[in-house]
């Protein structure tokens, strides 16, 4: 049984359909990536899961029960939403006390340690760097020690060093058994962190699977030949995606070795020559472009 399940969720804002029947499942302890360009519906999905918004239709279950377990959710919002005028300790203390004062000191010290801001404990948030603020934003979102963590593009606008630190923290949270839903429009983040990815665009999930499943057209073979039409027909019959342009034929496949071997074997019988072979890995970005006709950062 999936830990979190969304079934046919729809949500409209006036005339605009933000979500148009989204469904996905998240296993316990996994990092689930929701990948899509701006305006795809990622934040709306997060807002519905954490109950800020109410879906027009559809159902969300946590551990098989609808409308249950909301208290087990922690949200790391896209924006750094804290009080700049207060200290790190005051912010953590306030947001922590909202969930009750039990074990508050323990929770505060645990999460401030996790994001390594112990030396900034008494500093005002306004004096922290952008990366430090992002880390504190993470700690504030975790202060209720949630089982489910919803991260809405938590690395927007930070330096690579801080980004790597956040990645490491996410991995540590996963190791601690947390279930994470991570939205991003950075493919490399999704590839690096997520066990399972759903690609969302215009409120619809257009593709989902593990990183390797999604990359079934992972390799691109670029052949130079005197007879591109014949090669295109043979490659297409093998289930590959083919695009011929002049003397060049681009073939996308998950098994490049098999395709090349067969094309070479058939070249004598079919009477064509292969004069050049180039094989490269296809990125998720290209796959996204193929699926949606747009780039992720549009």
């Amino acid at each position: 049984m999936p830990f979190i399940e969304l079934k046919n969720i729809t949500k409209s804002f006036g005339e605009t359909k933000a979500l148009n029947g989204i469904s996905f499942k998240v296993s316990k302890g996994a990092i689930f990536g929701l990948l899509g360009p701006n305006g795809a519906g990622k934040t709306t999905t997060i807002n519905i899961i954490c109950c800020l918004l109410k879906q027009d239709s559809g159902e969300i279950t946590i551990n098989g029960i609808a409308g249950d377990g909301q208290d087990r959710i922690g949200v790391i919002p896209q924006d750094i939403s804290m009080y700049d005028e207060l200290t790190v300790a005051d912010n953590l203390g306030f947001f922590g006390s909202v969930y009750g004062s039990r074990d508050l000191d323990l929770r505060m010290s645990r999460f401030i340690e996790l994001v390594q801001l112990e030396d900034k404990f008494k500093s005002k948030v306004g004096t922290l760097s952008g990366g430090q603020k992002r880390r504190l934003n993470l700690a504030v979102g975790l202060i209720n020690d949630p089982e489910i963590i919803l991260m809405d593009e938590p690395t927007v606008g930070i330096d690579p060093q801080s980004r790597n630190f956040i990645f490491e923290t996410i991995v540590r949270l996963k190791e601690a058994g947390k279930t994470i839903i991570y939205t991003t429009h950075y493919l490399e983040e999704a590839e690096k962190l997520c066990d399972y990815i759903a690609i969302i665009d215009e409120g619809i999930i257009i593709k989902e699977g593990t990183v390797s499943e999604l990359a079934q057209f992972e390799q691109e073979i670029q052949l130079t030949t005197d007879c591109p039409q014949v090669i295109s027909t043979i490659a297409a019959s093998m289930g590959a995606y083919v695009n011929a342009n002049g003397q060049s034929v681009k073939i996308r496949t998950s098994d490049a070795v098999k395709v090349i071997t067969q094309l070479v074997q058939k070249s004598e019988g079919e009477g064509y020559k292969i004069t050049g072979i180039l094989v490269r890995k296809v990125s998720l970005e290209e796959m996204f472009l193929k699926l949606t006709g747009k780039r992720l950062r549009e």
């Binding site: 800020l52 208290d71 919002p77 924006d79 939403s81 804290m82 947001f95 909202v98 969930y99």
Partner: peptide
């Protein structure tokens, strides 16, 4: 403006 109210609402306040 700083989306703090949103965060507070999310924290069940």
């Amino acid at each position: 403006k700083r989306h703090i109210i949103r965060r507070l609402i999310l924290s069940r306040l």
